[in-house]
Simulated scan of single mutants.
Amino acid sequence: MARTLLITGASSGIGAATARAAAAEGWNVALLARSQDKLAALAEELGEAALPLTADVADFGTLETAVARTVDRFGGLHAAFANAGLGVDRPGTEGGDPEEWRRVVDTNVMGVLHTAKAALPELRKTRGHLLLTGSAAGRRHVKGSVYSATKWFVHGYGGNMSEEMREWGGRCTVISPGMVDTPFFDEAKPDKLQPEDVAGAVMFALNQDQRAEVREVFIMPTY
């Protein structure tokens, strides 16, 4: 039976590139995002191996439903990639927007927790793999940055989940990229990492022997 990977934030950027990479290696992919049109186009490209599911990671109920539909379609869940994330338009703390912070925390922190909680019961059955999108910004201090602080949470939580999941043979990996040329930014960054570079890091972690857990892949642009 083909293995199944659930991806949040799958409609573009790192999520879409990971879906393509996984499908090319024979995985089934459950594609989760809020954008129905983009999901439908990607699912059509990938064919029968793909299941598009509209979901908002800030809403735990939609993730529970998405996991249930994934298992119903493919027969199980072997990996979940909590990739969805938001940045801020008004950086810093003093000049920041509390309403914007709430949206970022709901996605970057609660979204990761929701994805993990929804997926873990099924991952336990398959001794599965949880992957989280961290960031170079979660490995260093960035003055006044709320976004960076949410990624510090992801890095800490990923380590905690590694300790929890190893009790039943599961694995957790934090994927920690530097700047990536994705729609996350308003302007193109063609000289930085490409989404395919990060997708390769995800597949590297997934493809390790079950006895080996890659707890973090830290990937930076060379210039």
Score class of each variant (00 low, 15 high):
R3N: 11
T4G: 04
T8S: 14
T8N: 02
S11A: 15
S11G: 06
I14N: 01
G15L: 05
A16Q: 06
A16N: 07
A17H: 10
T18W: 11
A19V: 00
R20V: 03
R20F: 09
A21I: 02
A23Y: 10
A23F: 09
A24S: 11
N28W: 05
V29F: 06
A30P: 03
A30G: 09
L39G: 01
L42R: 04
E44V: 12
E45G: 06
E45L: 07
E45K: 07
E45Q: 10
L46V: 13
G47D: 05
A49R: 14
A55G: 10
A55S: 13
A58G: 15
D59W: 11
G61I: 02
V67Y: 03
V67F: 07
A68H: 08
A68M: 06
A68N: 09
V71G: 07
D72A: 15
G76R: 15
G76F: 10
H78W: 08
A82Y: 05
A82H: 03
A84F: 02
A84G: 05
L86K: 05
V88E: 15
D89V: 04
R90H: 14
P91D: 09
G92E: 09
G92I: 08
T93L: 15
T93K: 06
D97W: 09
P98G: 07
R103Y: 04
V104Y: 00
V105G: 03
N108F: 06
V109I: 15
V109N: 00
G111V: 01
V112N: 00
L113E: 05
L113Y: 08
H114E: 12
K117Y: 11
P121Y: 10
K125F: 04
T126H: 11
G128T: 02
L130F: 15
L131M: 15
L132I: 15
A137V: 08
H141I: 06
K143L: 11
S145L: 05
V146R: 04
A149M: 14
T150P: 01
K151S: 01
G156S: 14
G156V: 09
Y157T: 07
G158P: 03
N160K: 00
M161H: 01
M161P: 00
S162W: 02
E164M: 09
R166N: 13
G170D: 11
C172I: 12
T173M: 02
S176T: 15
S176H: 01
G178I: 13
V180M: 14
F184I: 10
D186R: 15
D186V: 13
E187F: 05
E187I: 09
K192R: 15
K192L: 11
Q194W: 07
P195V: 04
L206C: 08
N207C: 11
N207W: 06
Q208R: 14
D209I: 06
V217N: 02
F218K: 02
I219Y: 12
P221H: 12
